[in-house]
Amino acid sequence: MTQSRRFWGVASGMAAGALWGLVFLAPKVAPEASPMMLTAGRYLAYGLIAALLIAPRWRRVTAALDFKAWRALAWLSLAGNIVYFVFLVVSVHFAGVGASALIVGMVPVVVALWGLKDKDSPPLSRVAPPIAVAALAVGLIGWESLSQSGGTSHDGGQTLIGLACALAALLSWSAFAVGNSRWMGRLPDVSPHDWSLLTGVVTGGFALLLAVPAVLTMGVWSGEAWVRFLGVSVGVAVFASIIGNAFWNQASRLLPLTMLGQMIVSETLFAFLYGFLWEGRGPTVIEIVAMILMVISVVWCVRAHRPAAIAAVESEH
């Protein structure tokens, strides 16, 4: 039974990563859309679908929420969805899918570093090595991206903007991951699925406000461009936000936290795969080395946070 739970948990985590990785292709499929338009389109669709799904249970679910919980939903929706996706789209435009996916894929490392002051966290000496490996991976992919920019100051400047936006997306998503986990712990009467749908509804409200300046600043689009945009918006909302989150919630129920953190690596690897397929090329040597370092860093960092590992360190002191 334990092996069966682990198998289906890993399968669910991999499925979530495969669906989340599609997000990195959105700016490539609909290049006419600005970051604001893509964000507004995706989260308007997500908000509408989430509202329809939670409508039958709305009164019962919201009865458990107070003002602080609604305020938390607001900033979590901004950090984990609106702000994160805007930075991600800009990063993909300027730095490419590979660089963006690798940097954002460092979320488990940043979250682990963020939680060093929490109870039962390992000492800095234990997580410093994997963090150094992560920094090396980011440095390699950044150097690779700047090298591919052609050496001109204009292209190099755009690449630097893209890399900076990827780092901003990483910090935004990490803040969401930490805050979301803590708030779910404070609300045991709200299921993870309902909390995700509530986040979607609030995000849809913000997307509605974002849609106004996005539409006012857009240019003239052809019918084909509108079809691509609507397809990307609905597709990413359904597959990444609704189905992907459902798979992740299932993995969260079946796997221990130490294994669950490692599943986030699958999102980055699938994003790399989709990017290579879209660009019609294979990975460079530096990209392969950076991916390997990233996987090593995440797995190493997660293992450093295992209760047994922490207990061993404490017994040594």
Results as ranks from 00 to 15, higher is better:
Cys165Pro: 03
Cys165Glu: 08
Leu167Gly: 12
Ala168His: 05
Ser172Pro: 05
Phe176Tyr: 15
Ser181Thr: 14
Arg186Lys: 14
Asp189Ala: 15
Val190Gly: 01
Ser191Met: 04
Trp195Arg: 10
Gly200Lys: 07
Gly200Met: 07
Val201Pro: 05
Val202Met: 08
Thr203His: 05
Thr203Ser: 11
Thr203Pro: 03
Thr203Trp: 04
Gly205Thr: 09
Gly205Ile: 07
Phe206Asn: 03
Phe206Pro: 01
Phe206Ser: 02
Ala207Pro: 00
Leu209Thr: 10
Leu210Cys: 05
Ala214Leu: 01
Val215Phe: 13
Val215Trp: 14
Val215Gln: 12
Gly219Pro: 07
Gly219Val: 10
Val220Lys: 12
Val220Pro: 11
Val220Trp: 09
Val220His: 14
Ser222Asp: 08
Ser222Met: 00
Gly223Gln: 02
Gly223Thr: 01
Phe229Asn: 00
Phe229Cys: 02
Leu230Phe: 11
Gly231Ser: 09
Val234His: 00
Gly235His: 01
Gly235Phe: 05
Val236His: 00
Val238Ile: 13
Phe239Lys: 03
Ala240His: 11
Ala240Ile: 11
Ser241Phe: 05
Ser241Glu: 13
Ile242Asp: 01
Ile242Asn: 02
Asn245Arg: 12
Asn245Leu: 10
Ala246Arg: 13
Ala246Gln: 11
Asn249Tyr: 12
Asn249Ala: 12
Ser252Thr: 15
Arg253Gly: 11
Arg253Trp: 09
Leu254Tyr: 03
Leu254His: 04
Leu255Ser: 10
Leu257Gly: 15
Gly261Cys: 04
Val265Ala: 14
Glu267Ile: 09
Glu267Ser: 13
Thr268Ala: 13
Leu269Asp: 06
Phe270Ser: 09
Ala271Leu: 11
Leu273Val: 14
Gly275Thr: 11
Gly275Met: 09
